[in-house]
Design a protein around this nucleic acid. Structure first.
Lengths: 306, 306
DNA sequence: TAAAAATACTCCATAGGTATTTTAT
DNA sequence: ATAAAATACCTATGGAGTATTTTTA
């Protein structure tokens, strides 16, 4: 079986037109080099060099082999590079699922810095409900997802990438809209608009109800299972009720809605990445690293409260 | 340095999706195979397989390597074939020099059988004087030549490929033209047409004069240094004189010329191949073998005498 | 627990080194 | 006489085998 080592030796000898010089270039002694070439000639059944005491020169067959061997090395070298790039997650494809909220402030900087660092990775983005994210992850349809934590699934790994407080969204004409800040307990009897809840995924719904529980009441749901923040804010503007929403929602400066910071809201709302624990895909790993390293600007800064 | 052995092992494992099965296919034990793959992964710095207790499957990088490795093997295999074909003289080019006489009966069967056996060798044919054949050989302009023997050149090898007797060419109206055969001695006073002679190359000229010397006379040259047999025969037809020519010249059945066998002409005229002793070219070797193996039909058969 | 891969060791084939001879200029 | 390649012989790296442990379905 012809091996690349022999071909490398052959090329060196052919290029140097001398066993001694080639041996020097290869950092080895001349006799073993002669041996290797001899064995190469034997296994090909072809004489590759015409020997003389004043150096050597290739036969026709040797000349051909020289050209082809260079081709082989170029191919092998290119292959190694490609494989390493793919192996290190620099090339490939990545499909992401995400809840719409993630596209407001969280995803853009991550995607942009990932696209910069790994220009040869094709990104596919799919907006979807958090329960579908989990399902599609298991099906292998997506490589990672962004959704509200926590998430309880043993075969999925989760990491928090953004933490923001809840803020209160009030109709502008609400009696409390003139206050500096509003105590959560004072909302015990207010009609609440609650976000959607999904099986085994407390998510935002869990955060809101937990906050109310700690304030000593169970929210009085006038409307529930609202999927989009945008819709919640719309309902608030319509005076249907009040809502606790992630601070970044304040960016939707909708007319008829005012946002109030709520003191003592300890449990922050967390958005996180999810992926299959057994997925060792290099592209995924690279993406997760970028997601970790991308700083999130202080979303939901109270100074932005309108 | 990545070696083909490792790649072969890798392909086997990838194709079998199992170390054990691959090891069986490779006629080796499983542990060293695991080792080799491990080392390949280490030297690439890339994980190639996802292992599990129920077999293995390739990573993205492994998938790419599988495709590329197959490419590499195809290229290497093709290269080996090509090199062997060239090395065995089945592909290439060959340039021949020859004296015109060689193209009468000697060359055609050789060229045809060579062309049949080695269709991928390009043949280049150059008609030239014998002294030029020697010179061009030394210059490397031609690979082999066909000329009249003997030839005295230490750096050239010679082999006889055709042997034919001399016959006498007489003007039709010559007094001896009615004889069955003509004794050479009876031509002692005849005007002779002698072929060309070249430095250090007795050739046909040598054969003719030697024949006369053995018959006890020196030919009386009425015309000498005639290059082409055709010309000699023409001069004979013109009654200028007589000539001793190789038997195959009888094929030129020129009006006004009769050919007579001459008894006791021991030294036969020899046409031979010449090549550089130090030329180990495989194409040349193949050609020489064909030249040796190609049977020459009985040239100069006396029955053809006109 | 059963099947497959990984680990630990042992051994040997062969790549590579050293000393020397051969060859051709 | 010199310079380079071939030969002969020795050493040692690493490839391959055997026995065993680890892992996961």
């Amino acid at each position: 079986m012809v091996e690349l080592r022999r071909l490398r030796y052959f090329v060196a000898v052919a290029e140097e037109s001398s066993f001694s010089r080639a041996a020097r270039r290869l950092h080895m002694a001349q006799p073993p080099l002669s041996n290797q070439i001899k064995q190469l000639e034997e296994e090909l059944g072809v004489r590759l060099f015409e020997r003389s005491s004043r150096g050597v020169h290739t036969t026709d067959a040797g000349e051909l082999l020289l050209e082809e061997a260079r081709r082989v090395f170029a191919l092998v070298e290119g292959t190694v590079n490609m494989v390493q790039r793919v192996g290190h997650g620099e090339v490939g494809r990545l499909t992401l699922g995400f809840v719409p909220s993630a596209s407001d402030e969280l995803l853009p900087p991550i995607l942009s810095s990932f696209g910069e660092r790994y220009p040869d990775v094709d990104l596919f983005l799919r907006e979807m409900r958090p329960d579908l994210i989990v399902q599609r992850l298991h099906e292998g349809q997506i490589d990672a997802g962004f959704l509200y934590l926590p998430l309880d699934d043993a075969s999925l790994d989760v990491e928090c990438v953004s933490r923001e407080p809840l803020v209160l969204a009030l109709p502008a004409k609400h009696s409390l809209s003139s206050e500096e800040q509003v105590d959560l307990a004072s909302l015990a009897d207010e009609p609440f608009i609650l976000p959607a809840r999904y099986r085994r995924m407390p998510g935002l719904y869990g955060q809101v109800t937990e906050a109310c529980r700690q304030a000593g009441f169970t929210p009085n749901a006038v409307q529930k299972d609202v999927w989009l923040m945008q819709t919640i804010v719309g309902l608030v503007a319509g005076g249907i009720g009040v809502a606790l929403v992630p601070a970044s929602v304040q960016n939707l400066r909708r007319k008829g809605v005012v946002y109030k910071t709520v003191p003592g809201l300890s449990p922050s709302v967390e958005l996180g990445v999810v992926w299959r624990s057994d997925d060792r895909g290099a592209v995924l790993r690279s993406f997760l690293q970028v997601a970790r390293d991308t700083p999130q600007k202080g979303t939901g800064d109270p100074s932005k409260t309108a």
